[in-house]
Design a protein around this nucleic acid. Structure first.
Length: 268
DNA sequence: AACGGACTCAACCGCATATTG
DNA sequence: CCAATATGCGGTTGAGTCCGT
């Protein structure tokens, strides 16, 4: 990055006129046109040159989270949820880093998802979202169940996956990073975690060289299923949309909450 | 229909880091 | 090396919307 070279037009009165709040269509249009011509970056000078009474930060955020091509909005798919849970278990609140693995998703959206869905469930379970108990619950209960549902969805809809349309209306471009996730039917999943009591680690499955996830058997001590993450290929995040009836609301059922509460009460 | 609480998500804020002169 | 500035990131807020009563 560089310092802006212009020193003329950033007077203090202009600072006073900085606009905040929701962006208008006109502002969006100005920003899009300007970036299309001049490219991204130099946000402060961009804001001034384009005539936007916004801070550079605001312009950058608006572009990255909303106006940029390829931004995906709308429901987080099961595959994306699974990946978020997995990556968060390893990287914590590194939202930008996690977002890199979910093409089209922004750190802001993932952060919002985490706060509105996952943290909410932790509260229902009366445990801290960063506690070992909750992390283990996510790892050994929610993630396997997510995979079950993904697999079920795969079997139900696998033959016409290529015709699936995405919920969002944004265009996908060919130069976007290759999505990490795809489901293939070789996935093996245990139907129930036998126990939570031997969960002693916080990391879960591992991304291996070719982009697949594999279960780390070294961590897989105790009674946990060893067949959980046998063959997980991520290449089509959009294959299964909540429209098929497997939205996240379907995942966090009362039944599952009770199941978790039972284990949290007895195993920890 | 009206109200209030819960929820969502776009946007802002503060801080840390990177870059430039 | 240092100060000034830009950028990036994570946490937080609050307006709009949804939903139950």
């Amino acid at each position: 990055m560089r310092s802006i070279s212009d020193s003329d037009s950033c007077g203090s009165e202009e600072e006073m006129a900085v606009k905040k709040g929701p962006w208008t269509e006109e502002e969006d249009s100005i920003l899009i046109n300007y970036v299309n011509i001049h490219g991204e970056g130099h946000w402060n000078s961009l804001a001034r040159s384009a005539g936007l009474k916004r801070t550079g930060k605001s312009c950058r955020l608006r572009w990255l989270n909303y106006l940029r091509p390829n931004v995906r909005r709308g429901n987080i798919t099961l595959q994306e949820q699974l990946l978020i849970l997995d990556l968060h278990s390893r990287w914590g609140n590194r939202w930008a880093k996690i977002a890199e693995q979910l093409p089209g998703r922004t750190d802001n959206e993932i952060k919002n998802y985490w706060r509105t869905r996952v943290v909410k469930q932790a509260k229902q379970l009366k445990c801290d979202v960063n506690s070992k108990q909750f992390r283990d619950a996510v790892r050994y209960v929610w993630m396997p169940r997510l995979m079950e549902r993904i697999q079920a969805s795969s079997y139900a809809h696998g033959h016409d996956k290529t015709n699936n349309n995405m919920c969002n209306t944004n265009n996908e471009s060919s130069d976007e990073a290759k999505p990490i996730m795809a489901c293939d039917n070789s996935l093996l999943v245990s139907s129930e975690p036998q126990s939570l009591s031997h969960a002693t680690t916080t990391s879960s499955c591992n991304l291996i060289g070719d982009g697949r996830l594999s279960w780390d058997s070294a961590e897989n001590n105790g009674s946990m299923s060893t067949t959980l993450w046998q063959h997980w290929d991520y290449s089509d995040l959009q294959a299964f949309e909540p429209a098929y009836g497997f939205g996240d609301a379907d995942l966090w059922t009362d039944e599952n909450i009770c199941f978790l509460q039972h284990h949290l009460a007895h195993d920890f």
